[in-house]
Each structure stands twice: as C-alpha cells, then as structure tokens.
C-alpha cells in the first residue's frame, strides 16, 4: 500500500520536476506580439494569404518588417489592433465579397444531358464540358460551398449558390475552385452586379437561357455615369468605382440579369436648411426632386433610388439619407 503511494507519487513528482526544468531550459522564445497578432486573425487557416495558416502568417507579420497585410478576411477593427501591436500602419485595401455571376436555375437554363458522376463541379466540367447547355452557366453541384472555410456559401432551393455577405470575407477560395470562373470578388459595398458572364450572342442564348445578358446595351445607354458597359461581346460589366448605385440599369434590363445586393437608403431634404437653389433637381438622374425656386424642394420617395448625387452637390448640406 505505502509502496504504491510512494511509487506513483514519486513517478509523478520526478516527471513534474523534469518537465518543469526542461520547460525553462528548452523554452523556445516566442515574440509576444505574434500571439497578439494571431488572436486578431480570423483563425480559419484558409491559406488565402499564401502562408500555411494563420499562425504562420502571424509569424511572418511580426518577423518581417516589410510584410504586407495579405489576409483578405481580416476586418477593420482587427486590422487596427494588429497595426497597434506592430507599431506600423498596415494597408487593408477595399473589403471584397464573393459574387455568383449566374442566375440560370434548372427551370430557366436547360441542361444537355443528365449528369451522374462525382458530386463536384470540377469533375462535372470534365464530362463533355458540363451538363448545362450554357457553357458559362453554374453547374450547381456546390464545390464552392464545400470549399468555403467560413460557411458563407449555401446552395439555395434554386440549385444556385448564394453568398451570405455578412459571413463572406472575400478570401477568394470559391473563385479559385469554380471551374467556370462564375464567382468573382466585388467590393463589399458594391450595390449592383451583372449575374451573367456569357459571351454568347442573344440569338444563341435564347435557345437555352432566359436570364442571361443579351448584350442589348440598354443599360449602357441608360446609365447616367457611364459605369456599365458592354464591350467585345462580353456580358455587361459594371465599373464599381464609377457606379453611383442609382439602380436605373436594374429597372431597364429586359432579362433582369442585374442583381441588387443591398438596398440603398433614400435621400430626403431638410426643409430648414434648403435654400431652393434647384441644383439637386438638376442633378437627379431619375427626376425625383421637384419644387419652386427659393422654396424648399421635396424628394419623391417613390422615385428616389438613393444614388446620393444630390447629397454631394447640395451647397447647403440640406440633403441626407434616411436611416434604415
């Protein structure tokens, strides 16, 4: 009995002693900043930064004075915290989110054959170039869903992937995975995107898809800011830097292929501040503002699309957005 107690206690004591001593002797010096940086990184180990994981990237950030912030998933708060820890400013760049450029549900975009192989878009693409008649359309097998480290993409009832913009961090894994390059990164504050990347002509497309871009150029002619263009047979492309989010393109598109990602807050005029200069009425692309000179102007909420041009141009700061 006493032997047992002494022996097990003794082994435990000796082991603890050895471990304690070696913990000090063999201690690997770790930069305390590295831990602080690691705490701020997302911790999904997605590898979008080009390193083996968040820990490896934190190591690089602390050890290399010139390392740039390569993590696309880090938010502004964390970026600021990391900058504070490292005592140097890290450029963040515009936050991006993934956008799926296809609206071709099985009902609206026909398939050429029934595919029964591995449940993976990349495998499906190899079999005679994919089952979808449109060679630019989403195959709908959800490889992007599988690869997302943030659980931000889900297959909808319509057999198309949907991006949860709150969860998406713009790491771009789905972009690399999609064999048809349908998913692309757009600025997180982008409001309108064209959900089609087809280069086929309208005539060809009519045979297999009801929701593709038919290159009619109506949006290009309508856009007051020259932000949306149809060039070289490509589907319409929105230049997000020029886009003022007026939404006119959505209302004129005959196939409804332009998607609205967020609802823009509409504008209203503060009566006390308005001097009645009529500048807002002149710049409004949708004629939503009316009024008489020298009297407060009024914005028709039914017409306003929230582009914000009037807010920018008003000399008296009398126009503001409604809070949603």
């Amino acid at each position: 009995m006493i032997n047992a107690v002494i022996l097990v206690g003794g082994i435990g004591f000796v082991a603890a002693l050895i471990l304690g001593i070696s913990a000090v002797t063999f201690a690997v010096k770790m930069d305390p900043r590295e831990k602080a940086v690691l705490d701020q990184l997302p911790g999904a180990n997605c590898g979008a930064c080009g390193f083996a994981g968040c820990a490896a990237f934190a190591h690089e950030l602390t050890q290399n004075e010139n390392a740039e912030m390569a993590c696309p998933a880090v938010n502004e708060e964390a970026l600021q915290a990391i900058s504070d820890v490292l005592c140097r400013e890290l450029g963040g760049g515009t936050p991006m989110i993934a956008f799926v450029g296809c609206k071709g549900t099985p009902e609206k975009s026909i398939t050429r054959f029934s595919y029964v192989g591995p449940h993976d878009c990349r495998a499906a693409q190899i079999v005679a170039g994919g089952a979808k008649a449109c060679q630019y359309g989403c195959l709908g097998l959800g490889s992007c869903v599988d690869v997302c480290p943030f659980d931000a993409i889900h297959m909808g009832e319509d057999s198309l992937p949907h991006v949860d913009d709150l969860k998406c961090t713009g790491c771009g894994k789905c972009v690399d995975t999609c064999p048809r390059e349908i998913i692309r990164l757009v600025p997180a504050n982008a409001n309108y995107c064209v959900s089609c990347i087809s280069r086929d002509s309208a005539k060809d497309m009519k045979a297999y898809c009801q929701v593709g871009c038919i290159k009619c150029r109506i949006c290009e002619n309508t856009c007051p800011f020259d932000a949306i263009v149809v060039v070289d047979g490509n589907a319409a492309i929105i230049n997000q830097e020029k886009c003022r989010k007026c939404g006119l393109c959505v209302s004129v598109c005959p196939t409804g292929v332009i998607e609205q990602l967020h609802v823009q807050a509409k504008a209203y005029i503060i009566e006390e501040k308005c001097r009645g200069c009529s500048i807002c009425a002149q710049v409004c692309p949708v004629d939503a503002i009316s009024g008489k000179p020298k009297e407060p102007y009024v914005i028709d909420q039914g017409k306003c699309v929230g582009c914000g041009l009037c807010i920018e141009k008003c000399p008296a700061d009398a126009v503001e957005r409604l809070s949603i």
Binding site: L7, I11, I18, S22, A23, A27, V28
Partner: peptide, 19 residues
C-alpha cells in the same frame, strides 16, 4: 504508472524537438 510515464515522456520529447 504507464499512463503517467508515457504522457510526461511525450511532453518532454515534444519540448526538446521544438527547440
């Protein structure tokens, strides 16, 4: 006794390898 010895031994080896 074996559990005790194996666990602490592996911990020790891990520390040494890391260094």
């Amino acid at each position: 006794a074996f559990i005790l010895v194996i666990a602490s031994l592996v911990q020790l080896v891990e520390m040494i390898i890391q260094r």
